[in-house]
């Protein structure tokens, strides 16, 4: 894996910044957010390559250094073959009156491996913070592996924070329900998986990219 160069980016007061990391083998970012800034970041890992042996690694650190900041992190990985994607996030609420949410979703087939390590830290004086983290994963084969590590450190007492992580399989009762309406199994699975990723994709403001990705998902599946 190539040596990482950490990109340091400061969001100035009131700035809204969108970052889309699409299939970057090694992405390392460190953001500092100033007063009232908003960061919207997407990490997207999916290719329909024949070799299916890509490895992606991303590490995103976000520090809210002033009040009224919003940090919105989204990610998806649709992996097959021996592809691997490791996503590490760290959201640090250094001051209060801030908001952060993280939503990461993986679908893993064949021998693919995914990892999500999400760190969330709310410092002692960072009151009135709302921070959420969600990681949902679907395994399509017995050999696929998902590692999920939510790490929450909360030192302030007047905060709202939650996290949830689930790893499961396709909902067989939903598949049968769709088959009973005449939809074949593959199409039913595609509908379910596209719906699963839609929650991440519909947050992209670039609707053209959104459509391209939906097409790509359908090609891969």
């Amino acid at each position: 894996m190539s040596k990482a160069i950490i990109q340091h980016i400061t969001l100035s007061a009131g700035e809204t910044r969108e970052v889309v990391i699409l299939n970057q083998p090694n992405a390392q970012y460190h953001f500092i957010q100033e007063e009232g800034s908003t960061l919207r970041l997407h990490i997207l890992c999916l290719t329909d390559s024949q070799t299916a042996d890509e490895q992606w690694q991303s590490s995103i650190t976000v520090e809210q250094n002033a009040t009224n900041c919003r940090t919105l992190l989204y990610g998806m990985g649709l992996l097959h073959g021996t592809q691997q994607a490791h996503i590490r996030t760290a959201v640090l609420h250094n001051v209060g009156d801030g908001y952060s949410s993280q939503l990461f979703k993986f679908v893993l087939d064949d021998q693919a491996k995914g990892a999500f390590r999400g760190e969330l830290k709310i410092l002692p004086n960072a009151q009135q913070v709302e921070a959420y983290q969600t990681n949902r994963n679907i395994l399509l084969s017995r050999q696929a592996e998902m590692l999920t590590e939510p790490q929450l450190e909360i030192y302030a007492d007047d905060v709202k924070a939650s996290h949830g992580a689930t790893t499961g399989q396709l909902d067989e009762s939903a598949i049968f329900y769709m088959q009973q309406r005449g939809i074949d199994r593959d199409t039913a699975a595609k509908l379910l998986l596209c719906a699963f990723f839609d929650e991440v994709l519909n947050t992209l403001s670039d609707t053209e990219l959104q459509e391209k990705l939906v097409e790509k998902i359908n090609t891969i599946l």
């Binding site: 939903a174 049968f176 509908l191 379910l192 839609d198």
Partner: peptide
Amino acid sequence: VEIPGVSVVNFMRTA
């Protein structure tokens, strides 16, 4: 069965 993210319209069009 509940199918989150798949609208009734889309489901019926496919079926």
